[in-house]
Write a protein that binds this DNA or RNA. Sequence first.
RNA 1: GGGGCUAUGGUGAAGAGGUUAUCACAGCGCUCUGUGGCAGCGCGGUCACGGGUUCGAUUCCCGUUAGCCCCC
Length: 399
Amino acid sequence: MNSFQITKKDKKTRARLGVLTTPHGVVNTPGYIFVGTYGRFLHLDHEDLKRTKSQIFIANTFHLWEKALKSKLKEGFIHKSFGFDIPIMTDSGGFQVLSLAFGDKNKVGKFMTGETTDPIKRTKIRITQKGVHFNFKGKKMFLGPELSMKLQRIIGADIIFAFDHITSPLDDFAYNQKALELTNKWAHICLKEHEKQSRLRKRSGEPRQMLFGIVQGGIYPALRKKSAKYIGSLPFDGFGIGGAYTKKQIAKVLKLIIPHLPEEKPRHLLGVGKVADIFEAIENGIDMFDCVIPTREARHGRLYTRAGYMDIRRGAYAKDKKVIEKGCGCPTCSGGISRAEIRALIKNVDREQNARGQRWCLMHNMWFFNQLLEDIRNSLGTSSYQRLKTKMLKNFPTA
RNA sequence: GGGGCUAUGGUGAAGAGGUUAUCACAGCGCUCUGUGGCAGCGCGGUCACGGGUUCGAUUCCCGUUAGCCCCC
C-alpha cells in the first residue's frame, strides 16, 4: 500500500521524478506540501483545497496533541475529523518544543536574521535522554520520541516523522554533536515504538504509517555527513532533512548529505520552500518539501505570479478589474474574481469579509506553487526547465 | 451686516509655553522558510498665513483668510 517509485532521473543533476503511494492516494514528486498545522486550512474547506491541485499536506503533532487524545475517533482521527481524503503527514512536534528555546529576541528561528552571535541559552526547556521538558501556557509538559510516536499513531497520518533534536545556527560544534547523538538515539526509539504502534494499527485493520527519519548536524559538514550516513542506514521509509541554517547554507548541506541517503527512498526537506529554494532542493535530489510561505503570505496579501510578487493590498489595485494573473487556472482567477474585489475584502476589518479575501488569496498561491511544481515535473531534464528556472529566479530575487 | 467656534502629516482626532509633536486609518516601502487567523517593521507633518508678547511659541494675544453655527 505504501511505496515510492522513481520514474525518471535527470542526467545533469540529482533531480528525479517519482510517485509516492499512500493509503489515501498518490503524490507526484517533486511535490510541494502545504502546512495545515491543525489538520486543516484556515478559511478553506475540502473542496477549496482540492481545487488548488494540492496532493498532500502536513499537520503538526504538537498542535493536534490535545484534540487527538480527547477525540472519540479511535482510528483515522485526522482524516475523519476534518474530512480530508488526501494523503497527510504529521511532523513530530520536536521542532515546536525545541524551537521554543530559540527566542524571538535573537531573531533566530529556522533562519537567522539577526546579528547576534550569542549562544542559545535553553532556559525555557530542559532536554534529557528521554525527551524535552517545557512550559506551555503555564503548564509543565513533556514530549519525547516514544510519546510522539504514540500521538502520531493516534492522529493517524499516512506519513509520520521521527522525533529529532533541531539546533540553532548559533549552537557550536560541541552542542551540535551532542544534539546529534540524541537525534540518533531517538531515531532508534522511534523505530522501535513505531513497530509497536504498527502492530496495534494492524490489529484494528489500519494501514501501516510510513516513518521518516531525520538528518541533522547543523551547519557542520562533518556532522551532517555522519548524520546522513547513520540515519540513512536505518530502516526508515524515507528521510527528512531538518535543521536551522544561516541563509544560503541549504544547498551546501544538501550536496553533502544526499549522496549518503538511499537512492530509492523519498527525501523531504523540512520547512523550506521559497521559489529559489525549490529549484535548489530539487536539483539536489529532494522529492518534497513543506513550507508555510505560500499560505502565510497569502493571508497577508502577498500573491505570487509568474512575473513576481504582488501585494494585493496596495492602493493601486483598488479599482483594478483584472484578475490576479491573466491565464491563471486557479479557482480565484478562473472564477473571474478581480484584484479590486480581493483587495476590498482583505482590507475589510470585518472578520468574515476578510476571511473571504484570504480564501481567494490562499487558493491562488496554493495553485501557483502546485502548478509551478507540475511544470517543473513536466519539464525536468529539458531546456524548458532551464528557461522556467531562469525566469523564476529573476522574478523572485529574495531567495 | 453682527456674534460665536474651529484651523495640527492624505483623512479623523490628541496635545503641552521649552529636548526627536501623539494616535488611528489611508498611502508608500520592506519583511515573513518543520505557520493559525483582519500580521509585523519602517517612511511621510515644523502644527493655515502675517504680526505681537516672551530668553523661547505650534501651544498666549491681535489681524488676515477659510470652514461651520447663530442672529438680522
